[in-house]
Design a protein around this nucleic acid. Structure first.
Lengths: 256, 256
DNA sequence: CCAATAGTGTCTTTGAGACAATATATG
DNA sequence: CATATATTGTCTCAAAGACACTATTGG
C-alpha cells in the first residue's frame, strides 16, 4: 500500500553497462530524436479497477464479479478492464462502473485510490492497474444473476467479510476501506451514500457501517447540528409504529 | 487531482456497437482465450515521475531537471522515465532518484502520490505517469551544472516558488505540497528531512518550511515532548556565540 | 398500554493556541 | 556586557467522549 514508512534498504537493481546514457535513450523526458523509439518499447498493459461500495441494510457492501476464466477462475474480484487509448483514467473507471451496475455514473463519488504495479501481480503479463473507488447511493446497483447474459455474475458482499479475492484485490479492498474510514472523519464523503433527504439515524447507520463500530447517538447528532453540516427540512419520515423522524439534508456551505 | 468532490455529471462517452461483448473481448478480466489478444492492443506509455524534496537553509526545495528537447524544451520538470518491463513502480522511482541525485535511495521516504493520465497531457503520445515523491535529508542531493556530461542540468528550486513547469508538472507539484502538509500533521514524516540527531529549532524549521508559515516555539516543543515523539540525547550542538542547543532524536515507539 | 425508534443536555478531559521572560554560550 | 539563540509555563477555549432519560407514533 502507501509507503507510510521509509522504504527500508531497497535492494540494488541490476544495471546494464553505460547506465546513464542507455537509460536516457529509454526515457520520454530524455527525448528520443526519433519519436518512434519509445513506441516500440515493451509496454505494460494498463487497466482500471473499480471498487464499488454502497450501504444496504446498515452494512457496507462491495460489488464483486465472478471470474469465469483463468487466472483465478471462479474467484471474485473487482470490475475492471483495459484503459482505451483516448479516454482518461477517470472516464475508464466510469465506463466500468456503468457497465457493471447499470448506473448512470452521474452523481456518484469517484476517487482514485492507488496504482498497483508489481511485475508479478498478474501471472499472464505485466499489468499496471489504476484503482478507483466509488460510493453509490442505495438502490443504484443492479446485480447480475449467474447465467444471465449481461456479462459475468455480479453480486454485493459485506465489505468487511468477503470471500477470498483474485489477484491482489484483497489488499486493494483493505486499503480502500482504510482510505474511506480516514476520509469519513474530515470530509463530507458520507453523504454520497444517502439520498438527498435522510434521517439522522440513517446517517449514523452509514457512519457505523463504514467505521464498523457503534457511535454514540447524542454526540453524533450534536456534532452535526453544531457544525451545521446538516439542516432540517419540513418533512418527516413516518414508517413503523414509533415516533416519526425528521428528514435532513446536507448543507454544502458548512465546510467543517 | 484527487476527486475530492462528487464527479459532476460526467458526459457520456462514445460507445461502439455491441458494447458489452466488444468491451469484454478487450478486457483482461474478461479473459481472452487467445492470450495474445490484449498484447496487440494499443497500449499507453507508462512512466514514473519523481518529486524530490529537501529542506535547505530553512526552505523547502524541489529538484528540477531542465528539458533539452521538445516538447517544452528549455523548461523545467521532474525527473522521470519509462517503467521497465520487470521492475516495480517503486523500483522505477528509486532508479530515477539515484540517477538524478547520486543518492543511494536507501533511507529516503518514498510515497506514491497519484497517477496522471489525461490523454492530452503529453502532446507526443498517450503517457500515463505514476508520480512518487521523495523526502531527502540535507546534503544528499548533488545537482548537475549546465553542460556537465552526467545528463541534463538539474537544480534545486524553492518548492513554493518555481519557474513555470513542463507538462502538468505545476499541478503535480501543488498536489505534492498539499499531501505533504497534510501528512506532516498526523504522521512523523517530518523526521525524514533531518539527520538522526537534530535540535528542536532545526525540527521547527522543517515544519515551518513545509507549512510555509511560522509556528509558536513553546507550543511546538510542548507537543513534541508531551507525546514523547522526540527524546533528548546527551549531546549538544554548539555553534555561534549563543546558548548551545540540545540534540534530540526521533522516538519511533511513540505513535501519536 | 406496549413496542419501537426519535430526540435531547451535562460534565469531564484533552488538545490547540495565545502569550513573555529567563538562561547560556561567544566575542 | 552585548548579542544571539535556547529554553520554559499558564490560561483560555473548543472539541471529543462518557453517560440516561423523555417523546411520539402505531397497533
Amino acid at each position: 500500500m502507501t509507503t507510510d514508512t521509509p522504504t527500508d534498504t531497497p535492494q540494488d537493481l541490476p544495471q546494464r553497462a553505460m547506465r546513464t546514457h542507455e537509460t536516457r535513450a529509454n526515457t520520454l523526458n530524455g527525448a528520443a530524436p526519433t519519436p518512434g523509439a519509445f513506441e516500440r518499447a515493451d509496454r505494460p498493459a494498463v487497466t482500471v479497477d473499480v471498487v464499488i461500495l454502497t450501504v444496504r441494510t446498515g452494512r457496507l457492501e462491495v460489488l464483486l464479479v465472478r471470474r469465469d476464466h483463468a487466472p483465478f477462475a471462479g474467484m471474485w474480484g473487482f470490475p475492471g478492464g483495459l484503459v482505451r487509448p483516448d479516454e482518461s483514467l477517470e472516464d475508464a473507471a466510469l465506463r466500468e462502473l456503468r457497465q457493471e451496475t447499470g448506473a448512470s455514473g452521474a452523481d456518484v463519488y469517484l476517487e482514485q485510490l492507488y496504482t498497483f504495479g508489481e511485475p508479478a501481480r498478474d501471472p499472464r503479463t505485466r499489468v499496471i492497474t489504476v484503482v478507483y473507488y466509488v460510493l453509490e447511493r442505495p438502490g443504484q446497483i443492479h446485480t447480475r444473476a449467474p447465467g444471465s447474459d449481461g456479462g459475468a455474475e455480479a453480486q454485493l458482499f459485506p465489505a468487511y467479510d468477503t470471500p477470498p479475492l483474485a489477484f491482489d484485490h484483497g489488499d486493494i479492498l483493505r486499503y480502500t476501506l482504510q482510505r474511506l474510514r480516514g476520509k469519513l472523519e474530515y470530509t463530507t464523503i458520507g453523504f454520497q451514500l444517502l439520498p438527498p433527504e435522510f434521517t439522522l439515524s440513517e446517517l449514523q447507520e452509514v457512519y457505523e457501517a463504514i467505521l464498523n463500530r457503534p457511535l454514540d447517538k447524542r454526540n453524533f447528532r450534536k456534532k452535526l447540528l453544531i457544525t451545521r453540516i446538516v439542516e432540517p427540512t419540513q418533512r418527516m419520515k413516518m414508517v413503523g409504529q414509533h415516533r416519526p423522524a425528521r428528514l435532513y439534508r446536507f448543507n454544502p456551505k458548512a465546510s467543517a
